[in-house]
Design a protein around this nucleic acid. Structure first.
Length: 677
DNA sequence: AGGCCTCGAGTTCA
DNA sequence: CTCGAGGCCT
């Protein structure tokens, strides 16, 4: 074979490899449906890299190897968009959305109008330019007219095709949104925290920061995705020119782009409203952030007739969800003392509206977290409410620092009792050593005793407990059982009726099984679970109180720490006195035998985790039902979990279960399983 | 000693 | 729900 022939063969092979690799990129990143293994893919890639290394003259910019290969840039060149990237008018309510519909139909003289509703991805808008079907340039939105050239960084995003999968050599500008998956964002921030680097406030900032990297290698290491949502400019498509927005999306999909699968055609504004309501509730079920819904008139001819104002098109609108992030100020950082003496710093905030409620405080957990985020009194901060209800201070806006901000110092004396505060080696928490001499710990301890999962004394809430303490009626939990009707009825906002109800609740609490009492005592390291284990193992309070270290550690999940803590509790004479008085008052000190697990339930010996809200059970009922069938209920998902029962609005446990491939049951399947055997 | 798997403790607003 | 830390297995 001559040298020329050989070169031609290599060229041919390279071409074939590129086609094949791009095809598999498409299957994997766009369709999420790979047809070969990662190893096979790697082998193809390796071969291409080697061939190109031997023949550098054959390397072209659209080769898949060039997705990561470009050298760091000096700066970002400005790019003028062929057609401007307009922003959309925002609406914040259903009324405004309907007003938009009215405007559109009026402008079109009452013609029928169809809308396309699509998710508004919270990322950053970019424009991709293809010449003769090849990706040549990508730019950020910028001011809408001029953006920045981020071509080399966009090449690292695998769901962006380097060549269009079309027959005709089309020249086109494609518009879309680059974003970062939520999970990857958290991972990235975790790494940055560990490395002492500043954190990104949200996935959008992380995506923007990643795309504005001068070195594409950094971008390549950041897992970015892209959804395309429109065409800015097109020539050469011939007869294939789309007539509706939906057709345009179809064309983009055919060309090899990733379009969002949740886009819907709506025949009326009511359908649009339903779509918005649906995704406002379900936004957490997506693994990327959305901040609203984009509504567009489907017909391109109608779009043209509607035209645009100076700022935005008249044929589209963005319906924005209530913000989940807000900027506010840290007025003060106060310290709360918990039941175990833990001092928890809490940020007092200028009240801000956030996802439908007003936030005025947020826990800062401990000193280390304050230090890591460098939160100071007077700082402007970004607060966020995630899927849960609890607000979190995400980040300080350091640009807004004026210089008068004060650093937080953990007090050296307990703010409630003046006792010393200690922070043990290797622990994150600071603790008040005051013990039962600390009014806060006494108060919280009594509240814990009366709480639902402990002795379940309905009516013994924070305000009543505070009054009982102030009046000197209660000093320890034992005093609860000496309360008289007259004592209670004299308290503020306490009529005879309420007092009777309370006494009834106290009376009922006497007959609970032992594990509730053990839990209610608030022994350190003894939570609901260990309390149950201990109560079941020893059977009576006397036996538990008399248990030695060795006897205690023989109980499963009881190690040195728990055993030591239990011993210390029962060594304390004041505690023994309290227990004696409780027994005298008639509080049950025995564990009721659990009925033997019913024969052979399919749940016997299985570990079950619950997440989300179940329709037909409370959480407790579901747990009891599993326990009664010889199963175990756990609080976290792992490989050892047998079933995850998913209710409405499941949390992260659902994701974890899918990740680990644990069997997932919905409420119906769970009920069926309960019924069997 | 290290790595999982759990549990315990603390938390916000309406 | 999340984080930290205790318990237990390898």
């Amino acid at each position: 074979m001559g040298e020329v022939d050989e070169l031609r063969a290599i060229e041919e092979r390279i071409r074939k490899l590129r086609d094949e690799i791009e095809f598999h990129n498409y299957r994997y990143y766009v369709l999420d449906d790979p047809v070969i293994s990662d190893a096979e893919y790697d082998a193809l890639m390796r071969e291409l890299v080697e061939l190109e290394a031997e023949h550098p003259e054959l390397v072209t910019p659209d080769s898949p190897t060039q997705r990561v290969g470009a050298a760091p840039a000096e700066a970002f060149a400005p790019v003028v968009h062929r057609s401007p990237m307009m922003s959309l008018a925002n609406v914040y309510s259903v009324e405004e959305l309907r007003a938009f519909d009215t405007r559109v139909r009026k402008a079109l003289g009452g013609e029928l109008v169809e809308y396309v509703a699509e998710l508004k991805i919270d990322g950053l808008a970019v424009s991709l330019t293809y010449e003769d079907g090849k990706f040549v340039r990508g730019a950020t939105r910028g001011d809408g007219t001029t953006g920045e050239d981020v071509t080399h960084n966009l090449r690292t995003i695998r769901s962006i095709p380097m060549r269009l999968r079309l027959d005709q050599p089309v020249s086109i500008d494609v518009r879309g949104e680059v974003y970062m998956i939520r999970r990857e964002f958290h991972k990235l921030n975790e790494e940055r925290r560990a490395a002492g680097e500043p954190l990104f406030a949200n996935p959008r900032n992380a995506a923007a920061g990643s795309l504005r990297q001068l070195d594409p290698k950094v971008t390549a290491a950041r897992p970015l995705g892209m959804f395309v949502y429109g065409i800015g400019y097109m020539s050469g498509a011939g007869g294939a020119a789309p007539e509706t927005h939906l057709e345009a999306l179809g064309l983009l999909k055919e060309a090899g782009f990733r379009t969002n699968p949740n886009t819907r055609l709506c025949r009326t504004i009511d359908e649009v409203v339903d779509y918005c309501a649906h995704w406002r509730e379900r936004r957490d079920s997506l693994d990327y952030e959305i901040d609203g819904v984009v509504v567009k008139v489907n017909s391109l001819a109608q779009q043209e007739r509607l035209g645009a104002t100076a700022r935005s098109p008249r044929w589209a609108v963005a319906y924005k969800f209530p913000a989940r992030q807000a900027t506010t100020k840290v007025r003060d950082i106060i310290v709360q003392v918990g039941r175990t003496g833990t001092l928890t710093p809490v940020a007092v905030l200028d009240p801000v509206e956030l996802a439908g409620s007003t936030v005025s405080r947020a826990t800062l957990h401990n000193e280390d977290i304050i230090r890591a985020k460098d939160i100071r009194i007077g700082d402007t901060v970004i607060v966020e409410k995630g899927g849960d209800v609890i607000p979190e201070v995400v980040k300080v806006v350091t640009e807004r620092r004026m210089g008068a901000e004060r650093e937080f110092r953990m007090p050296t004396k307990c703010p409630e009792c003046g006792a010393d505060v200690v922070r043990l080696e290797g622990e994150a928490a600071s603790r008040c050593v005051g013990g039962m001499a600390c009014p806060a710990q006494v108060r919280e301890g009594i509240l814990h005793f009366a709480s639902r999962d402990a002795m379940d004394i309905e009516g013994m809430g924070p305000s009543l407990v505070a009054q009982l303490l102030d009046a000197g009626l209660v000093k320890t939990v034992a005093d609860i059982y000496d309360l008289k009707l007259d004592d209670i009825a004299r308290l503020e906002r306490m009529g005879k009726k309420s007092a009777e109800n309370l006494l009834g609740a106290i009376e009922r609490s006497k007959s609970h099984p032992l594990h509730r009492l053990v839990f209610g005592l608030g022994i350190r390291h003894v939570g609901e679970r260990s309390a149950r284990d201990l109560a079941e193992h020893f059977g009576t309070m006397d036996k538990l109180a008399a248990a030695t270290y060795d006897e205690l550690t023989r109980v499963p999940d009881v190690g040195p720490k728990v055993a030591e803590s239990v011993l210390a509790f029962f060594r304390e004479p004041r505690n023994r006195e309290i227990l004696r008085r409780l027994a005298d008052a008639g509080v049950n000190m025995k564990e009721t035998e659990r009925a033997a697990p019913s024969a052979e339930s399919p749940l016997a010996g299985k570990t079950v985790v619950l997440t989300g809200t179940l329709e037909r059970f409370t959480r407790k009922e579901a747990e009891e039902a599993v326990l009664a069938r010889g199963g175990k209920v756990s609080s976290s998902v792992s490989r050892k979990t047998d079933y995850v029962v998913v209710g409405k609005d499941p949390g992260s446990k659902y994701d974890k279960a899918r990740e680990l491939g644990v069997t997932i049951l919905d409420e119906h399947e769970f009920e069926r399983l309960l019924g069997e055997g």
